[in-house]
Simulated assay, not measured.
Amino acid sequence: MHPSADSTGPKKTQQTYTQNLSDLFKPIRNLIPFGAPSSTPSSRLFARVPASTVILVIGLDGAGKTTLLRDYLSPRPDSVKTITPTINTGISLEDLQVGPAFFQAYDLGGCRPPYYHRFDEDLFRQADAVIYMVDAADRDRVMEAREELIMSGLRANNGGMRQGVPLLVLATKIDLENGRRPDQIETFFIDNISTSIGDRPRNVVGVNLKTGEGVSHALSWLSDGLSPRKDTLYNEKTASTEK
């Protein structure tokens, strides 16, 4: 068989996967039997945000996304739902309802094909707020984490974060001896890429997910920024969807 014939089929299959991934995940939220949301500190904290607000919790693997959802945002560990498509893509989302808001956790980076960035971009584009989690103690991967944020969240050609969407960078594992300080993470993630971040609310907070240090402060900043933006969020998302 001619070499070009070998590559055509897989390439078309890859394009089909990336084009349909977002559609596979979108209707799942309506199928999950969340029931009546429990009253927890987090649900009360986000009670004033617009209905169906989507908050994307994203970053490299091992940064603490699942811990944030299960230990600080969820009333029970089993409230977090893992969503995977029926096709074998290696992609999964963790989904959690907190009051009127939906949190979606997703791993960036790793040994994934480059075309998966199209799905990453779509997640950023649909989000009303982004919590970008960074392992402050993993110095070898801080550069990778920064590049993933730039490539999929800030400089995507047809996707990426919408203008004005808040960006909260959580620097985790600050308790470890080799962990970078929050001000160092801010310099690396905010000051060095400020032109890509654009005119949006942004904050960098160091957190210790073992003790809870910094978590309440960070989530309060995010909920305060989302609450007054009901009409703006709805109009921006509607315009983005119609494009």
Rank of each mutant, 00 (worst) to 15 (best):
R202V: 06
R229G: 08
S43N: 10
K173I: 01
T195G: 05
K26A: 12
F46Y: 10
R200I: 07
R180Y: 03
V207A: 01
R44H: 06
G206S: 06
S220P: 00
D78N: 15
D175Q: 09
R76E: 11
F103R: 01
P41N: 09
T238K: 14
L21T: 05
A47K: 05
I87P: 11
Q184L: 04
I185F: 00
D183V: 04
F46A: 09
P3S: 03
D231N: 15
W221K: 08
K81V: 13
T67I: 14
E213L: 11
R180H: 04
N178E: 10
G160D: 06
D95W: 15
T40A: 04
N158W: 12
A105H: 08
P3K: 08
L123V: 14
P182W: 00
Y132D: 02
R48Q: 11
F46T: 12
P85E: 08
T66M: 13
G153N: 08
G99F: 04
H217G: 00
G99I: 02
L24P: 05
R155F: 03
S220T: 12
R181N: 04
G110T: 12
P166K: 06
V207G: 01
N20G: 10
D128I: 05
Y106H: 12
D231H: 14
R44F: 02
F119T: 10
A239I: 14
A136T: 10
F103G: 00
R202Q: 13
S152M: 02
Q163N: 13
A156R: 09
C111R: 15
H217T: 08
R162C: 10
T82F: 12
K230N: 12
S7W: 02
M1Y: 00
S92Y: 04
S79P: 00
G212R: 00
L170I: 11
R29V: 12
K243T: 14
V215E: 02
K26Q: 09
D128R: 04
M161P: 13
P3L: 07
F188I: 03
K243L: 11
G214Y: 05
E121L: 03
R162P: 02
T241Y: 15
Y17D: 14
K230C: 10
H2Y: 02
H2V: 06
V142A: 01
N88F: 13
I58Q: 06
K243H: 14
L123I: 14
T187I: 00
D122P: 03
L31E: 09
D224V: 11
T232H: 07
